[in-house]
Nucleic acid binder design. Structure first.
Length: 269
DNA sequence: TTCCAGGCGTATC
DNA sequence: GATACGCATGGA
């Protein structure tokens, strides 16, 4: 990681980082790709335009303080992905997945946003998930707080066209407002306790809870088992993920998920 | 028209 | 604990 200020922008030299592979791989739903390849999106309420330029990235209108305090963490720039991929190279399938998207990184998203996003993901497809979240942000002039969603209630969320998931979203919001569910200690809690905490919410089962923990709390030991990962496990890992994934199985999962989504024939029997 | 989508709640065995 | 089914919505 090497960076410097250039006018109003911040220039970043960063290996193992590709915008398409990181921002359009099914982990975050609020980044939009412009025709020129730049991405516009948010970490919490902080907006960013980021683009690739030759051998570096440009973060528009970003100073060093904001970069260091927000974006280094959000893009997980302090983690050595070359070292991770080197370890994963012991496994043939994982090695192929890493070669397929060598610039993928695990985003450290806001916990509440990740929870909402993956509540909305169930029995749904990615373009529609993005659409629902876009309508939600439009309705509330930004990503809504739990209090805003709770006040809107299930009926107030009708414009989102989220279907049966509106009730789940409203329940999550209400339980956070009431303090029944707390997100602030999920990062350090035992995995069992963290899952149990989240699964008090109607519409949050093991898979959604695990996504909330991986993408919203950086619990990299968690592997969300969606239909695609179940296919990957059945086809390549009947005895479980290899030992080389160690405590970062969640990141390994993201390489595998993206690989199989873009190459579904690999799991055809 | 029918099927399917980063699942979950409920009923039933 | 395993399995079957409905669920809102919209694109293929």
């Amino acid at each position: 990681m090497d960076f410097y200020r250039r006018g109003a922008d911040l220039v970043l030299k960063q290996e193992d980082f590709d915008l398409d592979q990181t921002l359009d791989c099914g982990q975050a739903f609020r980044w939009e790709r412009r025709a020129d390849g730049a991405y516009t999106g948010f970490a919490r309420d902080l907006a960013l335009v980021i683009r690739r330029e030759r051998d570096y990235f440009v973060l528009e209108n970003t100073d060093e303080d904001t970069f260091l305090s927000v974006w280094v963490r959000y893009f997980d720039l302090a983690t050595d992905y070359a070292a991770l991929k080197n370890r994963y190279a012991d496994d043939e399938t994982l090695s192929a997945a890493c070669r397929f998207s060598p610039g993928m990184r695990l985003l450290r998203q806001d916990g509440w946003e990740a929870l909402c996003s993956f509540i909305l993901s169930q029995n749904n497809n990615i373009p529609r998930i993005k659409g629902i979240i876009a309508r939600m942000c439009a309705l509330f002039s930004g990503f809504p707080t739990p209090a805003q969603l709770a006040q809107a209630g299930e009926a107030g969320l009708a414009p989102l066209r989220a279907g049966f998931r509106a009730r789940y979203l409203a329940d999550a919001a209400q339980k956070l407002v009431d303090g029944v569910v707390r997100l602030d200690s999920l990062e350090t809690m035992s995995l069992a306790d963290a899952r149990a905490q989240l699964m008090q919410i109607i519409g949050v089962g093991t898979k959604v809870a695990d996504c909330a923990l991986l993408y919203g709390q950086y619990r990299t030991e968690v592997v969300p088992m969606d239909v695609w990962m179940k296919r990957v496990m059945a086809r390549f890992y009947p005895d479980g993920l290899p030992a080389c994934t160690a405590a970062t199985q969640g990141i390994a999962q993201q390489y595998l998920f993206h690989y199989i989504r873009r190459n579904p024939a690999l799991c055809a029997l």
